[in-house]
Amino acid sequence: MIKINNLQARVEDKEILKGINLEVNPGEIHAIMGPNGSGKSTLSSVIAGREDYEVTGGSIDFEGEDLMDLDPEERAHKGIFLSFQYPVEIPGVTVSNFIKTAINESRKGRGEEPMKAREMLAKMREKTALLEMDKSYLSRSLNEGFSGGEKKRNEIFQMAMLEPKLAILDETDSGLDIDALRIVAGGVNKLRTADNAVVVITHYQRLLDYIKPDFVHVLFNGKIVKSGGPELAHELEEKGYDWIKAENA
């Protein structure tokens, strides 16, 4: 589905990604772990097309197409979804109005008709139920005055509505209490199919107890320094990141 080849990126003069290689296939769950400042969030931003980062080398191939020249919204139309570590507040714009616009713009981008209002409503009802959200969420201003947990849940709600092929969850577990974590993870699991894939970016193993990864990668200093199965996450949890740092010093 997505193939990242020797990806290098920097912000201003600081090199952050120093040659990332990663391949994710439909139906797979990958976890990317690593200490703070290793480049995890940069990787997700670069995949989503954030212009603050300059890609200095390598390529990202999504379903056989080079992503580099595409705008962020075009990448979204192709089915890439990023759950933000810090979701942005947009005062005065309701969740429902926002998601309606997002869905119909994506459909327009793919040359499809706008979704019918009735269908949209039914879908919203279904997905709010899935994430155990009160329907009053829909009429609140997007992320404004939301608690940390509400913001993250709202991200997964949007993911459920947009049905992306590739979902990147950037530190979705941070700021969540155990109940919220269970609901969010449950939502992600229910949304899994054989055709979509999930990349979970996290600092801790905690989330991986709920969303079980097929592959675990360790990102350190702009490179993936170790890959393995779910057992790698447990090893990291036990030993901390110091041994990775020591090995790669």
């Binding site: 989503a48 097309g49 954030r50 212009e51 603050d52 705008d71 962020p72 919204e73 990448r75 979204a76 139309h77 979804f81 990023l82 933000f84 979701p87 942005v88 507040e89 947009i90 005062p91 005065g92 714009v93 109005n97 926002f98 998601i99 616009t101 997002a102 869905i103 713009e105 994506s106 981008g109 201003s141 997007l142 949007q158 947009l162």
Partner: peptide, 29 residues
Amino acid sequence: GEDQIFYCNQRGIGTEEAIALIVNGYCKD
């Protein structure tokens, strides 16, 4: 904010529509 626009972009909303959305939200009251 740039971050507001990027957030909308990531959800598939182009920059012009994003600005329209944000301005309308700003004027909602």
